[in-house]
Amino acid sequence: MITPGYAQEMARYNAWQNSQLASVIEVMDEDVLTQDRKAFFGSILGTLNHLLWSDQIWLSRFDPALPKPEGPDTELCPTGMAWCAARRECDGAIKDWAHGLRQEALDADLSWYSGIMQRAVTTPLAQTVVHFFNHQTHHRGQVHAMLTSAGYDAPVTDLILMPEDV
C-alpha cells in the first residue's frame, strides 16, 4: 500500500504546513484564535489543538515509548504560542518516527484500544498511517478556511509546491 518513503515525505509535508501555520498563529490575537467559529472543534485554536492531540495519540500507538496526550483534545495548549512550541516538538517526533519506519512494520497490523469505539481495534499499519496523514490534511483545511474567513492570508498547501529544503 505505502512505503517508508511515503511516510517520510508526508512527515516533511506535515512539518512544512505546520511551520507555515505557526508563522500566522504567532502574530494573531488570542481572541481571534479562540473565537467560536461554529466549526466542529469551535475555534482555530480548538481545531489546531485537536489535530495536535490526535497526532500525539497516534504517535503513542505507533511507538508506545512516546507519551500520550493529557486532557481534552481541544484544550491541549491554552495559547497560540504554546501550540506553536508543542507543534514543533510533535513534528520533530513524527519525522523521527517516519525515518525509523520499516516496510516490515507497515506490512503488519497495529492493535490499540479505541476510546471513540470503546473497544480494541486492529488495522493494517499502512492503512492507519495513511489515515494519520489524511487526518492532518483534513483539519488543516478547516483551519485554512477559518483563517481566510478571519481575514488572514492562509499559507499555500499544495504538496507539489513544497520546497526541497524543508
Rank of each mutant, 00 (worst) to 15 (best):
R87I: 02
P72G: 15
V27H: 07
V121F: 01
S19N: 13
D96L: 10
H144G: 01
P124E: 10
E104I: 07
R61M: 10
P4Q: 04
M162I: 12
D107C: 13
Q127K: 13
T148N: 02
M162N: 14
T137I: 07
W112I: 02
E70P: 04
G151S: 02
Q20T: 09
R37S: 14
A15D: 14
T157L: 14
Y152A: 08
E30F: 05
M81F: 12
D158H: 12
D31Y: 07
K38W: 05
I25A: 03
A15F: 10
T157G: 14
I2H: 02
D153W: 06
N49L: 00
L21N: 06
H138P: 09
P67L: 12
Q103C: 12
W53A: 00
Y13W: 05
T157K: 12
M81Q: 14
W16I: 06
A39T: 14
M28K: 01
V143I: 05
A22S: 14
I94H: 00
I57D: 13
W16T: 08
V143Y: 00
L52S: 03
N18S: 05
A7D: 03
H144A: 02
Q56C: 12
T137E: 04
L147D: 06
L125T: 06
A105L: 05
K95Y: 00
C90N: 06
L21C: 08
F62W: 00
M1L: 11
A145E: 09
P69A: 15
T3W: 08
P78M: 14
P163V: 06
F132W: 02
L106A: 01
A7C: 09
N18D: 08
P4L: 08
Q127L: 11
A7F: 01
I94F: 02
I94R: 04
Q127N: 10
V129L: 11
P67T: 09
A126W: 01
R119I: 00
Y152D: 09
L48C: 11
A98T: 02
G115A: 09
R88S: 13
A145Q: 11
D29K: 07
A145K: 05
R119L: 01
D63L: 03
S149G: 11
S54H: 02
T79A: 04
G141T: 09
K68A: 15
F133I: 07
A7R: 00
T148Y: 07
D31A: 15
I25P: 09
Q136W: 02
V24H: 10
G92C: 10
G46C: 08
P155F: 13
I94S: 00
P78N: 06
T148F: 05
S19P: 01
W53H: 01
A105H: 07
V166N: 12
D73K: 10
R12T: 10
D153M: 12
G80H: 03
M117P: 03
E104V: 05
P78V: 13
G100M: 01
A120L: 15
W16R: 03
H50V: 01
R87S: 08
R88V: 12
W58Q: 01
A120Y: 14
A11F: 02
